[in-house]
Each structure stands twice: as structure tokens, then as C-alpha cells.
């Protein structure tokens, strides 16, 4: 499967996790795509950590508002029921548990739900931005990513080796190969994607996966 198709597949699957009326913060990149694949009848409220609720569609060319961008700096619009606030309020919303779900990418996720997604040792440091607050504060943390790195090495590992974004906060991992829930006893394999075998998932995962007792849906 081509890279773009894999990303769309992941975004589509994550979108099925969202419930009507939830307040959701989508990270930059693949997570942003999730908004395009919401099931019919599901409306969510998107939070942007630079200070507003109610992110709308990308404006037409020439209709951009210089004061309206998402947290990645991309021009967006605001819905008629949106609201604007300062950064302290924005992060009060995040840390205070008022964001139902955040969807983010990962460099590594481990068996204990630890997440590393902001810094690769030895590579250029960019800073954590709002990621640490989001992962710590959101009620549910969903990781949306390709199952393995470009070189085929696993991103789901026994223990993160890179600097952590937050400790024990990840709830669900959605990849192009599988859906995995993080629970107190470890990683539970919930689903595998069409055309993928359990053996392929196990060999592409660097952590122990707890398999369901019965056959499970693909």
C-alpha cells in the first residue's frame, strides 16, 4: 500500500473512535486528516492550541485571514459557533480535562503507554510545543501512525528509548496494520487490517501483544 493510502486508512479508522459532540485536538500531519473522514452524523468541536475552538475548513485561495491559522501555522477558518481565547485559557482547556480526545503521531510508544514524539537524540531539537500538555491533559490519547519506521523497525516497543512526551498517557494506537489498546496489563491487539496477518503484526511490533481469546474482526 502506498504511503498516502496508509495515512488515509489510519485517519479513517481513528475517525470512527470519535463521538458526536466531543472536543478534539488533532496534531499536525496525519492526525489533521482525521477531520476529513468523520462518519455521517458525527460532528466534533476542534480545539486549536493557539487559541480557539471551532476550526472550520481551509479558506479559498485569496480569502485567508492573517489572524486565523491552526497550530501548524496553516490558514483555516472559524465556525460561526467558535470562540477565541488566550494561551492560558487554551491550555486550561487542555490540562483541565476539557479536551475529550487528542490524536497525535509518535516516534515510539511502549507497553506502559509511554509516548516519545518530540525529540530525536542527536537530531535537530525543535521543542515540545504544546504536545506535553496535550498528552497529559486530554481525557483520551490516540496515537495515529504508520506501524513501523521507514527502515521497517518497530515504533511500538517494550520501552521507549527516546525522550518522553508523557508517561503512561496513551490509550489507543491506530496504525495501518492494527488497532491496539493500552491497558494496565499491557498492549491488547484489538483489530488487524484487511490483508494483514497476525504474524505480520507480531513481527512488526517490538513489544508483547496480548491476543484476544477468540477470533477477532479484521
Amino acid at each position: 500500500m502506498a504511503g498516502t493510502d496508509k495515512r488515509i486508512q489510519v485517519a479513517r479508522r481513528v475517525a470512527q473512535e470519535l463521538k458526536n459532540g466531543e472536543v478534539v485536538n488533532l496534531g499536525i500531519g496525519l492526525p489533521t486528516l482525521v477531520a476529513n473522514y468523520l462518519p455521517q452524523g458525527i460532528a466534533i468541536i476542534l480545539h486549536s492550541e493557539n487559541g480557539f475552538l471551532g476550526i472550520g475548513a481551509e479558506p479559498e485561495c485569496g480569502k485567508e485571514d492573517k489572524d486565523l491559522v491552526n497550530a501548524g501555522g496553516k490558514s483555516v477558518s472559524i465556525l460561526p459557533n467558535g470562540s477565541c481565547f488566550d494561551s492560558a485559557m487554551s491550555f486550561a482547556i487542555i490540562r483541565g480535562g476539557h479536551v475529550d480526545v487528542t490524536v497525535l503521531g509518535a516516534l515510539e510508544v511502549d507497553e506502559k503507554g509511554n509516548l516519545a514524539n518530540w525529540m530525536v537524540p542527536g537530531k535537530k531539537v525543535t521543542g515540545m510545543g504544546g504536545a506535553m500538555d496535550l498528552v497529559t491533559g486530554a481525557r483520551k490519547v490516540i496515537i495515529a501512525m504508520e506501524h513501523v519506521n521507514k527502515d521497517g523497525s518497530p515504533k511500538i516497543v517494550k520501552e521507549c528509548t527516546m525522550p518522553l512526551t508523557a508517561k503512561g498517557e496513551v490509550d489507543l494506537i491506530v496504525t495501518d496494520m492494527a488497532v491496539i489498546a493500552v491497558q494496565s496489563d499491557g498492549l491488547h491487539l484489538l483489530e488487524i487490517s484487511e490483508g494483514t496477518t497476525i504474524e505480520e503484526v507480531l513481527s512488526s511490533t517490538g513489544a508483547r501483544l496480548i491476543l484476544p481469546k477468540k477470533n477477532f474482526p479484521i
Binding site: S48, N50, G51, F52, D65, K66, D67, L68, V69, I78, C84, F85, D86, S87, A88, S90
Partner: peptide
């Protein structure tokens, strides 16, 4: 302020 140009300014 206007839209998300508010951010850290009031704080």
C-alpha cells in the same frame, strides 16, 4: 484582539 492573534499577548 482578533482571532488567534490573541495567544500570549494578554498574559
Amino acid at each position: 484582539y482578533r482571532r488567534c492573534a490573541r495567544n500570549f499577548n494578554p498574559i
